[in-house]
Design a protein around this nucleic acid. Structure first.
Length: 429
RNA sequence: GUGGCUGUAGCUCAGUUGGUUAGAGCACGAGAUUGUGAUUCUCGGGGUCGCGGGUUCGAGUCCCGUCAGCCACCCCA
């Protein structure tokens, strides 16, 4: 049964749902600023943008993550329908599905990126919301270490584009295959390696006695494991190879090997990485790795893949922490949102009448033209409006045919025929 | 799912042991000052004090509940 409206009077205050955000112009521009860096970086690194549905069949998500995931999803069914759906909590299942269904005709490697919103039914807290924007970059069909490095290079290239330096964030890399090998040398049977990896992932969070207790139960000799790691770091071929490749890509000083990085997900098979603010000030900025079995899990041919995901929420916090989020004016400028011209009248009847046709003419020329909606004839106040609109020029109309064009950045002003304004402005763009 | 803190105008806040019609600054709008991004001045719109109960002659203020926000735990694809 549908419930009745709250009241016939308008006494109900509508609020945005928990964990969602309203983006007013300034906030949306800040998101666009980040998305702009994501998109530019992806494209310059050779990735093609893709997109899929905002919601999928529920079982697409339970295939990979199990039934336990359902409580973290926004799921629903159509009225009278039988199928269950869920808003996407991530993009990887959709990507795997999309790749699997056209695998035969796609090039190897296929390099795709994606940046849209995701939904997770979690309790919001710092750095985590119920709706957020995520950026994914994936290389599918290439099992080489070079592909791993290419993905890392794209991620790091984005940080550079936003003004972050190698001292601001730490990219910590590990290899699950290496760790699994050492675990087996340290007494863990092959079928319990997954459990052991999960334990290692939690190592920093639980206290030493509890860690030791679980380790013993799994058969892990912690002393041997730690010793083997220490010995391994200096000689590991995968480590050296990665180091060399990162150095030749010019990003060697961004990355550090860290055996503690395992990632909670079961499906990672090789290289894994996480990015944190250098002093661990926020939660993880990004994470990713190699997932060579996932495509076949979604019905495709056996296909190696490597990629990462990054959300806008933590990244924004880190940029703010570091003072790297530009001012609203600067962002508007970089996004190309500054009006080319702000049209005002000097208050005479002929000039007033010329405002609308002048605006229309400038817009027909493809220019970004704005006006004041104030009723004041005070030129100072109208110029104040032009400044607030961040306009590049102000056009003060003085008659039906002429006026003054003022460069608001340089504070210079010249007379001009209205017929020549568009030409001048185009030459200044 | 569990716990802590906080809710007064769009924003930042004031509001006396509970006592008239809830205030200020900023922002927004109108106007004055003979037409240049400033300053100053005048005026204005905007709140059922998050919401709902309770105590009281009387609640923004005290009590209970609830909702929301923030933060932490769980989890983190």
């Amino acid at each position: 049964m549908a419930s009745p409206p709250p009241s016939s009077r308008q006494d109900h205050v509508f609020q945005a749902p928990t964990g969602t955000r309203d983006f007013y112009p300034a906030e949306l521009n800040r998101l666009r600023y980040i998305q702009d860096a994501w998109r530019r970086t992806s494209i310059s690194h050779g990735f093609d943008e893709i997109d899929g549905p905002t919601f999928e069949h529920l079982d697409l998500y339970t295939v990979k993550s199990g039934e336990g995931i359902v409580s973290e999803l926004f799921s629903f069914e159509r009225f009278g329908g039988e199928k269950k759906f869920a808003l996407r909590p991530e993009f990887t299942p959709t990507l795997a599905r999309m790749y699997a269904s056209k695998a035969g005709s796609l090039p190897k490697p296929t390099k795709w990126f994606w940046m849209q919103n995701c939904f997770r039914a979690e309790r919001p807290q710092r750095g985590r919301l119920r709706e957020f924007c995520q950026w994914n970059c994936d290389i599918i069909g290439d099992d080489s270490a070079a592909a791993d490095v290419e993905v890392l290079a794209c991620c790091i290239g984005m940080f550079q584009a936003l003004g972050l330096r190698s001292t601001d964030v730490r990219v910590r890399v590990n290899d699950r295959g290496v760790v699994a090998g050492i675990l087996e040398q340290s007494g863990v049977k092959a079928e319990r390696v997954g459990e052991a990896l999960s334990l290692l992932d939690r190592r920093a969070k639980i206290d030493a006695p509890e860690f030791a207790k679980i380790a013993t139960a799994i058969g892990l000799d912690v002393k041997r494991y730690d010793g083997a790691l220490a010995a391994y770091v200096d000689v590991a071929p995968s480590y050296k190879r990665l180091r060399d490749d990162l150095n030749s890509a010019g990003i060697g000083d961004w990355v550090a090997w860290d055996f503690g990085i395992v990632r909670g997900l079961a499906y990672y098979t090789g290289m894994v990485f996480e990015v944190h603010e250098a002093s661990s000030a926020e939660r993880a900025i990004a994470g990713g790795g190699r997932y060579d079995k996932l495509i076949e899990m979604f019905g495709g041919p056996p296909t190696p893949a490597v990629g990462f995901g990054m959300g806008d929420v933590v990244l924004s916090l880190v940029l703010q922490d570091k003072g790297l989020m530009p001012s609203d004016d600067e962002i508007a400028g970089r996004l190309g949102l500054r009006p080319d011209v702000f049209v005002i009248s000097n208050g005479t009847p002929e000039a007033d009448a010329a405002v609308v046709p002048t605006l229309a003419g400038l817009r027909r020329e493809g220019l970004h033209a704005r006006r004041s909606y104030k009723s004041s004839k005070n030129i100072g106040k109208l110029l104040g409006d032009a400044t607030k609109a961040r306009a590049r020029f102000a056009l003060i109309i003085e008659s039906g045919t002429a006026g003054q064009i003022k460069d608001l950045d340089e504070n210079t002003q010249v007379k001009i025929e209205l017929a020549h304004v568009a030409e001048l402005l185009r030459s200044e763009k």
